[in-house]
Design a protein around this nucleic acid. Structure first.
Lengths: 169, 169
DNA sequence: CGCAGATGTTGACATCGTTCACATAAGCTC
DNA sequence: GAGCTTATGTGAACGATGTCAACATCTGCG
C-alpha cells in the first residue's frame, strides 16, 4: 500500500491545513479557528504550519481567497435577481465563511495579494453584472446589509429575503 | 487627602473596566480587547474583573449595550434622511464599536438581557421611524450594508455615502 | 464591636501564537 | 550512485490570554 504509516512528509500539508481550518470555521464560527488545532487535525506538529504560512492571518487570508473564488463563480452563474438571493443564502448557510471573507480581514487584504486578487475579481463581477455604478453599489449594499442583519439576528424571524429582494425598490 | 495611595477597593471597578475596554476597542479594533489588559488599565488584578462580569463575553455584552443606548439616542434625534448618513458615519468613525455591536456577539444576545434590551430598543426606534415594515428593513439593510462595505474597504475610495443615500432609490 | 458579604489578590492551569535549534526527507549535480 | 542543498516537519520554550480556586481585605449592618 502506498499510504503507509506516517511518512515524515505530509504530501500536501498546505491544502490539508486549509481544509482543517475550513472545517473549524464552518463548525465553530469566527474565533474557533486555531493554528494548533488545524495542525492537530492535519496530524502534524503545530509549527509545521509555519512552513506554509507566515502567520495565522496568512492562513485565514488564503482560506478567504479560496472561498472568494468559489463565491464569485457561483454568483456569476446566477441571473441578476437570483444573484441577490444567492448572496444572502450563502451568508446564512455559511456564516463562518461569510464573516471571514467580509470581516476585518478584508480591510487588510493589501498585505495578502492572494486575497486581494480573489476579492477584487469577485467584486468586479458583482458590479459589472448589476449595470450602472451607483445602482450596483446600492444593490450590493442592500443584499450585504440584509445578510449581516439576518445573520446577527437583528431582524424578526419571519423576514424573508426573497420578499425583500423581489418586490420593487 | 482622600484619594490616597491605592485603596483596596476601587470605587467603581465595573465602570472603569468598561471604560478601559472601550479605549482598547476604539484603539485596536476587534480582537484587541483583553480582560487582562483592561484590568491592567484599571489598575487592578486580572481576576478582579470576575467580580463584576461572569465572562469576557459578558464584559463585551455590557459594553455593546452601553453603546446601543447612545446610538439609539443619537439616531432618534436626526431626521429620516440624515439618519442613514449618521448611521454610516458612526460605523466609519467608530469601527470597533460598530463591529462589536453588530457582530457575532449580537446573535448571542439572548444570553445577555442587558444587550438584548438595548439592541431591541434601538432596532424598534429604527423601524418605527422609517415607516412601513418592508421599506424600513430595506432602508436599514442598505445603510448597514454600505457601512460594512466601506469599513472593509470593499468599495472604491471615491464612493460617497451621501450621494448613495440621497439620490432616489 | 463583630460578623457577613462584597470586593481584590495570588497562584495556578490549559490554550494559543510564535520562535529557535534541530531532524529528516527529496532532489539536483557530479 | 555519492554528496550537498533545500524543503519540510519536530521539539522545547516564551509570553500572553481566559479562567478557576483559595485566600485576604474592606464595608456596612446588627
Amino acid at each position: 500500500m502506498s499510504t503507509s504509516a506516517k511518512p515524515y512528509h505530509h504530501g500536501d500539508l498546505r491544502a490539508a491545513l486549509l481544509d482543517a481550518a475550513d472545517s473549524l470555521l464552518d463548525a465553530g464560527g469566527d474565533g474557533a479557528v486555531s493554528l494548533r488545532e488545524a495542525a492537530r487535525i492535519a496530524g502534524v506538529s503545530p509549527t509545521a504550519a509555519y512552513r506554509h504560512f507566515a502567520d495565522k492571518e496568512a492562513l485565514l487570508a488564503a482560506l478567504a481567497a479560496r472561498h472568494f473564488a468559489q463565491f464569485g463563480a457561483a454568483l456569476g452563474a446566477a441571473g441578476l435577481d437570483a444573484q441577490g438571493i444567492a448572496y444572502v443564502r450563502f451568508a446564512l448557510a455559511r456564516p463562518g465563511r461569510f464573516r471571514l471573507m467580509f470581516g476585518p480581514l478584508l480591510s487588510r487584504a493589501k498585505a495578502h495579494p492572494e486575497l486581494l486578487a480573489a476579492s477584487q475579481a469577485a467584486f468586479d463581477a458583482l458590479t459589472r453584472i448589476a449595470g450602472g455604478r451607483e445602482a450596483a453599489i446600492r444593490a450590493w449594499a442592500l443584499v450585504h446589509g440584509l445578510s449581516h442583519l439576518l445573520l446577527d439576528g437583528a431582524l424578526a424571524d419571519d423576514v424573508s429575503p426573497e420578499d425583500l429582494l423581489t418586490s420593487p425598490c
